[in-house]
């Protein structure tokens, strides 16, 4: 079966001539339907740049991404994005429900269908009864839930998440991780999840793409055979989890040490 999303040799150079900076050398991997693929790498390895190139928000210098057989040039239909900075990605002048409905309006979707989707996705992320609030009246974790509901209501084939839980506290983070894993089953959505947190990358994934420091390439792709449903305590106690975690940790750390002078 052909992969749902192919990342084919994406590279990105910022600037020109002598001041040119090669942020991403060449990144290639596939995401199959219904998979959760996590992308992990050391800080500053161009993860956000990679996501923008994959989604069509930023033109890559080399390579391309292909969604459902169609090369991506602009953000395509069937792609929902959850940004890291929820406070700037949600619109403060719109209510929670309006934020979720906004991408659906003006696209020929009937009014009651929009209302249904808004209600269903907000309920799925645990925000029943918060429809009329404004985003800034909610906690950070809840705001990110709104952003997730917005992306799900858009009914994407692939959900792209850019370090979505980087700015919430550890406990909220664990809850949100479980929410996303559960939503994959409920909405049958494919997830590409970018993170710098190795535990998170292992815990959520079917497969892990490990990146090198810049100029970024794929260091290795790790298959994860941990059973579902996953559990914050049970899963993390499994020998397999510990082994994978250490493996990915070494892969990230060694590569990083190689690039540091004097070590």
């Amino acid at each position: 079966m052909a992969p749902l999303l192919s990342v084919e040799g994406i590279g990105k150079i910022y600037g020109e001539g002598r001041s040119a900076y090669r942020a991403i050398d060449s990144v290639t991997f596939d995401v199959n339907e219904s998979e959760i693929v996590t992308v992990v790498g050391p800080s500053g390895c161009g993860k956000t740049t990679l996501l923008k190139c994959i989604s069509g928000l930023l033109p890559p210098t080399d390579g391309r991404s292909v969604l459902n057989g169609i090369p991506v040039t602009e953000p395509p239909e069937g792609l929902g994005i959850v940004f890291q900075d929820y406070s700037r990605s949600l619109y403060p002048w719109m209510s929670v429900a309006h934020n979720v409905a906004f991408p659906l309006a003006g696209k020929g979707i009937p009014r009651n269908e929009i209302n249904d989707r808004v209600e269903r996705t907000l309920a799925a992320v645990g925000l029943r009864g918060q429809q009329r609030k404004k985003p800034f009246q909610l906690s950070g974790g809840m705001q990110q839930r709104v952003a997730i509901a917005r992306a799900l209501a858009y009914q994407p084939k692939v959900l792209l998440m850019d370090e979505p839980f980087a700015s919430v506290d550890a406990q909220t983070r664990a809850e949100l991780e479980d929410t996303v894993v559960a939503l994959r089953a409920e909405f049958n959505v494919t997830v590409l999840f970018i993170t710098h947190d190795i535990d998170e990358a292992v815990y959520m994934a079917d497969r892990i793409v490990v990146l090198t420091p810049p100029p970024t390439t794929v260091s290795e792709i790790v298959e994860v055979s941990l059973p579902f449903p996953r559990d914050q305590i049970g899963t993390k106690e499994l020998a397999e989890f510990v082994k994978l975690r250490s493996h990915v940790y070494r892969a990230v750390k060694n590569r990083w040490d190689d690039r540091q002078p004097g070590q």
Binding site: K52, L79, G80, S89, F102, G106, K107, Y154
Partner: peptide, 8 residues
């Protein structure tokens, strides 16, 4: 970016 991503 959000508006572009959701094809507004």
């Amino acid at each position: 970016d959000t508006a572009r991503a959701f094809r507004i």
